[in-house]
Design a protein around this nucleic acid. Structure first.
Length: 275
DNA sequence: ACGAGCGCCTGTCGGC
DNA sequence: TGCCGACAGGCGCTCG
């Protein structure tokens, strides 16, 4: 499910609260329960319970697609993978079928990690930096310039779509935002990164930022039962639009497989580059 | 360096 | 209705 905009939206809601959920900053952890062992990547269940109990939440943030829940001594790092979701609820509510791990708070609330497909992972770390060591730059941060991005692309003989999905190249983009970015940039998903002109690279960076920013403004995309609350799905130009007319030229959107991922594009607006 | 194939899991949907 | 395969917002691994 969630890519950068969805994780950012969840982080903001947990930090600031919204109509449905209160902010969790300042809450005191009285205990935890683990229902699926593999959800917890690190440390052991016993160490996790011992260490997290008694800590207070001091902040909520995001790095790439990782959600960061800052505690007094540690950082709770959560990767939602395909189907993970976080829910604030009453500790007295019966836990839902797919709750894999939850924290209990002094105020009678619970923060539950719900994850039907069990791909999600949670770490409790004194220092999360090593976990993020191989991640590429944040696409929305200013250190990444059009020239710098062109240099990064220029050094790679790789198709654009798999490269955008490579978290060590650029951090936070997933299948939806890769397709939407390439469409906005007018680039074919199978064009080679090294074939882009400086202008095309600049256009791609701007398109990525535009797609991600719009996604955040719309509170992310909600496609099925997994993640709710966003409406970016109503603004998709290519993703999940196979056979429907391109909004720019009317050509039916095509779906192909690139790097074993479903890939949507307009064959008229997104022509392959030379080389 | 790069792509393909597969494993990890459960749920939904379309075709027959 | 039931069965069966395809497919799903991700990522780590091995193998050429």
């Amino acid at each position: 499910m969630p890519e950068l905009p969805e994780v950012e939206t969840i982080a903001r809601h947990l930090r600031q609260g919204n109509a449905e959920t209160p902010a969790i900053v300042g809450w005191y952890i009285t205990g935890a329960e683990l229902r699926w062992e593999r959800t917890l990547a690190e440390p052991s269940p016993a160490d996790f319970l011992r260490r997290i109990t008694g800590q207070r939440i001091t902040g909520v943030g995001r790095r790439a697609k990782y959600l960061l829940i800052c505690l007094d001594q540690d950082t709770l790092v959560i990767h939602l993978r395909m189907s993970g979701d976080l829910r604030v609820e009453n500790a007295s509510d019966p836990p839902a079928l797919h709750h894999r791990l939850w924290l209990n708070f002094e105020n009678g609330s619970r923060l539950a990690f719900n994850d039907p497909r069990k791909f999600g992972r949670i770490w409790l770390l004194r220092d999360p930096a090593p976990l993020f060591a191989k991640l590429g730059p944040e696409p929305l941060e200013g250190q990444l310039t059009p020239d710098g991005f062109h240099a990064l692309l220029n050094g790679r003989r790789r198709q654009l779509k798999p490269l955008l999905l490579d978290q060590t190249f650029l951090a936070g983009i997933g299948n939806i935002y890769a397709d939407e970015s390439l469409h906005r940039a007018g680039l074919h998903p199978q064009s080679l990164a090294s074939s882009l002109s400086p202008e095309q690279s600049a256009r791609l960076l701007a398109a990525i930022r535009q797609a991600l920013t719009t996604g955040i403004e719309r509170n992310g995309a909600s496609i099925d039962w997994v993640y709710r609350g966003g409406d970016f799905q109503n603004y998709f130009q290519v993703y999940d639009r196979r056979g429907k007319p391109c909004y720019t030229c009317g050509t039916p959107i095509e779906r192909i497989t690139v790097g074993q991922r479903g890939t949507h594009y307009c064959p008229t607006c997104q022509r392959p580059t030379e080389g």
